[in-house]
Simulated assay, not measured.
Amino acid sequence: MLNKPMRPALAPACSFSDEEREAVYRAINERRDVRDQFLPTPLPDDVLMRLLQAAHQAPSVGFMQPWNFIVVRDANKREQAWKAFSKANDEAANMFEGERKATYQTLKLEGIRKAPVNLIVTCDRSRGGKVVLGRTHNKQMDLYSTVCAVQNLWLAARAEGIGVGWVSIFKDDDMRALFNIPDEIEIIAYLCIGYVDELYTQPELAAKGWRQRLELKDLIFEEEWNRQSN
């Protein structure tokens, strides 16, 4: 006899209190990409586990939970990762010209060495089997799911008074070799994590004149692409 599936547990979908709701929006509005302001204060294991648990609570297509987390504390490993970044960063600087290049070169990107914890977030695209519910027609959904895990961690970190910086300037092959990451595993994010005592009141790139936030009203269409409300 087949076992009947258990009835899913349900709970009331109540709205948050005013204070709880304000805290959620505050974390969203005050989240920053931290590049250089990390303190040397160690990150306690229980706090790191809370952040990882927040990441693990992210939504995922087909509930495949494709993420893994490589925690990097070793100073030598972080120094080697910084060298891989630095090499790619020099190449990136040469892709800009004139004033743009000069501004780029003033940006401090020292999180890899300064933050006490580095975290590599990966995506195992084979998890869940060949056919995954919800990914049958959009094969990128597992990647998007893993990015949701990164955002969860980032918002939880803000609530803890912890800064997070997302490093994207490196060659995958360099990081794969350094951290023994198999070719079939996608590297989604290299994060620098640590306490900070101050944050920019606006995104750092906006504060330093690189780019300003776009107007939301210009990004909203009605019913179809490029049709804006009157």
Rank of each mutant, 00 (worst) to 15 (best):
L109P: 00
V131C: 11
R113F: 03
T122Y: 02
C123Y: 04
T122N: 08
K101Y: 08
A102L: 11
N118S: 05
Q105E: 14
G134R: 10
P116R: 03
L107Y: 05
C123S: 03
C123Q: 01
R127G: 02
N118C: 04
V132N: 02
R100K: 13
G111F: 00
R125S: 14
E99D: 13
K130V: 14
R125C: 15
R100I: 08
Q105N: 09
E110Q: 10
R135D: 15
G128H: 02
L119K: 08
K108M: 10
G128S: 10
R127T: 09
R100W: 15
K130A: 12
S126E: 11
V117I: 12
K130R: 14
V131Q: 12
T106D: 10
N118K: 02
G129W: 06
S126V: 07
V132R: 07
N118P: 05
S126Y: 04
E99R: 12
K130S: 14
A115Y: 01
L109R: 10
L109Y: 03
A115I: 02
Q105Y: 04
R125G: 14
Q105S: 13
I112F: 05
Y104G: 05
G129K: 11
R113S: 01
L133F: 15
R127C: 08
R100A: 09
D124E: 08
K130M: 12
G111L: 03
G111M: 04
R125E: 15
K108N: 12
C123D: 00
Y104D: 04
S126W: 05
P116D: 06
P116S: 11
L107F: 09
R127K: 13
V121T: 04
E110K: 07
T122M: 07
P116A: 06
G129E: 07
V117D: 00
G134Q: 15
G128K: 04
D124L: 08
E99Y: 07
K101P: 11
E99T: 10
R113N: 04
S126F: 07
R113L: 09
L133H: 15
I120R: 01
E110N: 11
A115K: 00
R135M: 13
I120E: 00
D124A: 05
P116E: 07
I112R: 01
E110V: 05
R127D: 06
G128N: 08
E110I: 06
V117L: 06
G111D: 02
L119A: 04
I120L: 07
D124V: 10
T103H: 05
V121Y: 00
R135H: 10
C123T: 05
R100Q: 15
G111N: 02
L119C: 10
L133Y: 15
I120Y: 01
K114F: 04
L107P: 09
I112Q: 00
R113G: 00
V121P: 01
A115W: 00
Y104F: 15
C123L: 11
V121Q: 00
Q105T: 14
G129C: 08
E99S: 14
D124C: 05
A115R: 00
G128I: 01
D124P: 06
R125K: 13
T106F: 01
L119E: 03
I120Q: 02
L107M: 12
R125P: 09
K101C: 07
S126M: 09
Y104H: 15
D124N: 12
K130C: 13
K114L: 03
T122L: 09
G128T: 03
